[in-house]
Amino acid sequence: MSVKNSTLPERGKAGGKANNLLHRFSYNQKLAPYVFITPFLITFLVFFLYPIFSTVVMSFQNILPNQVQFIGLQNYRNLNDPIFFKAISLNLRYTLVTLLVLIPLPMLLAVLLDSKLMRARNFYRSTLFIPALTSVVVAGTIFRLIFGEMPGSLVNQLVGLFGVKPVKWLKLADTSFAALITLATWRWMGVNLLYFLAGLQNIPAELYESAEIDGANAWHRLRSIIIPMLKPVTVYVITISIYGGMAMFTESFMMFSGNRSPNNIGLTIVGYLYRKAFEENNMGYGSAIGLVLLVIVMVVNVIQLHINGTLRKEKRK
């Protein structure tokens, strides 16, 4: 290093000193990793840890312009609100049904698509993926219009074929729920299919071969090899589906053109948070809602990971 320094052109004394400092800094291997992770550390402290901390504090406060007062657990007591329970119920049902649809169906399709007998595999894979490219705003617009209440809307035309009279899909709780599920299925099927397809590539061919020698049929193969081997992918898909389902907001926002569904049939937890915090400017109450959502998501996922044995396995490692 000293050799290198001496070859540097002569500079003013102060400049040389600063240069030297910069040089020592940029060649310091002990310091470097901390410099590399600094962008994350700043983001983490300022835009993650501090906000979480401040939202916990706010949840015990009543926040008015120029005046903040601590009100203890009042915000949490106010959560005992039938409308909030309605929102929680919607997200829970939505999460449950999307799991029941968007795990087995894409898994089965992935197995079929992965079959040796399948032709033009990549073409179908890409085509089924296309809905995931649309933003929720565009997808929501399309489905809102498809599920329109006029007799001429696509879904009403479709049920009309079976002699059903036009339905006001987005005005009723059950039918609007079905519309939300349809939208989710349409947008996420291709993505989950991709996850399962990727998982299938990791199954060693020897497993299939030895199963064939043992005379296993397709059903045995599915039950004894494919489903167990896809477990890590399945657990991952379940985990992200729970996050997505419990925090679902934009879908409902678009379906019901804004945050105002008739009789709150489409209200979600985040929608309720948005209404209270940003529309009614009650930041303290909004914080309490957000923290309840955080707890629900964490609890549901810990239970799910526990049932699936993922946590235990990691501990053993």
Binding site: P51, T55, M58, A247, V270, S287, L293, L294
Partner: peptide, 10 residues
């Protein structure tokens, strides 16, 4: 592991 939607308010 924390849904983005919760951070938005704070």
């Amino acid at each position: 592991m924390v849904p983005l939607e919760i951070i938005i308010l704070p």
